[in-house]
Design a protein around this nucleic acid. Sequence first.
DNA 1: CCCACTTTGTGCGTGCTTTCACAAGCACGT
DNA 2: ACGTGCTTGTGAAAGCACGCACAAAGTGGG
Lengths: 230, 230
Amino acid sequence: MTTRPPRPRERGIPEATVARLPVYLRALQALQERGTATVSSEGLAGAAGVNSAKLRKDLSHLGSYGTRGVGYEVEYLIYQISRELGLTQDWSVAIVGIGNLGRALANYGGFGTRGFRIAALLDADPEVVGRSVASLDVRHIDSLEEVVRTKGVSIGVIATPAGSAQGVASRFVEAGVTSILNFAPVVLNVPDGVDVRKVDLSIELQILAFHAQRRADGDGQVNRSGLEVT
Amino acid sequence: MTTRPPRPRERGIPEATVARLPVYLRALQALQERGTATVSSEGLAGAAGVNSAKLRKDLSHLGSYGTRGVGYEVEYLIYQISRELGLTQDWSVAIVGIGNLGRALANYGGFGTRGFRIAALLDADPEVVGRSVASLDVRHIDSLEEVVRTKGVSIGVIATPAGSAQGVASRFVEAGVTSILNFAPVVLNVPDGVDVRKVDLSIELQILAFHAQRRADGDGQVNRSGLEVT
DNA sequence: CCCACTTTGTGCGTGCTTTCACAAGCACGT
DNA sequence: ACGTGCTTGTGAAAGCACGCACAAAGTGGG
């Protein structure tokens, strides 16, 4: 860390773009199932709910995969995005906390897209351990380290109560897991190099409430033009 | 829509700030339970997992609620943020789609923070309709409009399969609901003025996979410094 | 072979976000 | 009263993200 290296820009895909690639991927898969072979940026952007210029710029970060005057070949683009996102390899996922939410996640068939495999379900409650959920035996949390090792878990999902989440996260990290998806309503503390993403129902509701209140407040008769919600 | 009104800047809180306020709120509530009466921006920022300068600027958008040399009074700040987010009033929520996820949401006790009340559960499956989930009778989706009217529903939660989500969203909108939280993996099409937020497990997993792959790729022996994941 | 048409890829201006760095302000001890 | 020490609130700079608008590049018809 001298004065800041010139930023190698190995293959710098902007974070905002990365967050949209899965949306494009899903839209493309829907198109493919409908038998569409080729799609324009305009068409795909519509299906994905974004501006077409933004879509083109996003895709341009992956390479030049379109044909001017024609558009993008659906199948080829699906492959390219999948590869970029790392979906051409298999990711082994462990879910900790088999309560209502954990069960819902375990049963979430297809698990989004192919590429993710649920390797294990873990819980601390003796009442739950040993039960079978989504054709998997729930194992005791004490075997977390062993499970991570033997099943090659690379992504940990935390669906425990808030109080247990940090402990589980630390054990995941200790066991070598560097990607964590956290559903518990707490801020996790992890070392650099570990990637945590958070999914939080109540935060989303609160943001909705904020905008709803805003709309209700200044709602004389003005702003019937829509644009207020960003 | 003339040439763009001078932007009244009624009370312009940046979107990025709004998204963080719920996090601050939760951190503050945790501090309060631990008996802390006062906290510095540094301390609160630590608990919320953000930079202290950012926290101060965020809070400065609400007003000048701190005391220099001391910090912020926990209780007072909780009240101010709650008020800003609209949590001092009650929001009535309806959940559509009482599958695994819907049940998990319905049972999510406390429903995040106070301020949100589950007013109704709806489903299309005759097998599920009539059952009792989280001390509420599941009603048939056909009564959506009536439920919205009689229970004053202002936030709609969609936890249906992808195929049904758009239909439910349209009915919510038609019934006057302008805030929607969507758990189904589709892009919803709604008119201007309706606020949709999306929660999507598989997108989060894919983003994690992308970063994990990135880490694995350029992992010769360089970059042991952590900073690579943004 | 050339022309008209379509659609991509991108340079550029604009506005939002983040971060730094510091003056202003308050509490407290003397 | 006054100085010392800490912490807030905020200009200003740097970095990102978005969307327009257009040149470049390909297709297909004549």
